[in-house]
Computed example of a mutant assay.
Amino acid sequence: MRIDAHHHLWDLNAVHYPWLMESGTPRFFGDPTPIQRDYLLPQFRKDAEAYDFKASVHIQVGAADPWAEAKWVQSVADQHPDWPLAQVAYCDLTSDDLPDQLDRLQSLPSLRGVRQIIGRSPGEDAKSGTNDLLENPKFLAGLRELGERGLSFDLQLLPELMEQTARILERAPRTKIALCHAGSPHDRSEDGLDAWAIALENLSSMPQVFCKLSGLGMFDHDWSADNVRPIVETCLSQFDPERCMFGSNFPVDSLSSTYAELISRYTALVPDTQWEDIFYRTSAGFYGFVAE
């Protein structure tokens, strides 16, 4: 059994995604036009089951109404009991009514954690101001609240923010953290990857932080096993396989590869002895799947 620890689904008739349906707006991950269509569990399963994936984690993906998205994901899980589906929902950790929001989310059996994006890309962050979350004391309080409730936090940010973020996470040691997309190494030059690796040490040194090998095609649509090898090897070295997990980031990463190509590249990158950890054991433990 394998688990895909990071993917998205959407039914465009059920939930509205403003970012997805924008026309003519370039995004850091590419042109979203090819994925402006329904992407439902049966389609995802068709790709994933061909490679022995039998469970997965749905990650929130910018719905106009996050609660509507979370309820819809729960309905998908309920309709497909033969496919264990956990979810990480959106919640604003700085909200004054955070306890009430978390109470509502925790009424959903599929809920495992929360994601609130801190950093997407330098250009988009400069316009959105999401980096400012790190300056808000309510954000730290929210992280602590997650840990007290046994919920995890999916952390999406840029390398430039890792040192500052680590200082905050040190003050919320009970909260498990899943670092999305290997920390988004957006500068793929030699100097850029060196700077990313140094920044990553701020997070990898913390035992509560785990790393997702996901989203490697967002900043390079021509990626191959060879040109991301330094990224994967650095993650495996700093976190060890016991704290690394695979995520396809589909359908967003379908803009740069098929599911088959994705698995083929990771086959070339991950030693056979580490596959069980990266493709099953780490994510099963982190997201609370029942072992088979």
Rank of each mutant, 00 (worst) to 15 (best):
P66F: 02
I168V: 15
T33D: 12
P207L: 01
T234L: 06
L169K: 10
E276C: 04
D154C: 12
W67H: 00
A195L: 10
D52A: 13
R171S: 14
A68C: 02
K54I: 07
H6F: 03
Y280T: 09
H16K: 09
R27D: 00
Y259W: 09
D191T: 10
Y266I: 00
M1K: 09
L146N: 07
K54G: 15
A284C: 11
F210M: 09
L143Y: 11
Q60I: 08
G30L: 07
Q156W: 05
L20M: 05
N13G: 13
D65S: 03
Q106A: 14
P42V: 03
Y266K: 00
V73I: 15
F289V: 03
Y287T: 06
T25Y: 05
N202H: 14
P42D: 08
N131Y: 12
A89F: 02
L255G: 08
L161S: 13
V15G: 01
S248F: 06
K46P: 03
M206Y: 00
Q101K: 13
K138T: 11
L40H: 05
A48P: 11
R229W: 04
D11W: 03
S264C: 00
V57W: 06
E233P: 05
R281E: 09
Q164Y: 01
Q208Y: 02
A70S: 13
S23K: 14
A172R: 11
P32I: 09
P34Q: 08
D132G: 07
R167Q: 15
A70I: 07
K54C: 14
S184H: 13
G192D: 11
H181L: 06
G285D: 13
A182C: 15
G288H: 13
L255V: 02
L169I: 15
Q43G: 05
Y90C: 04
L146V: 11
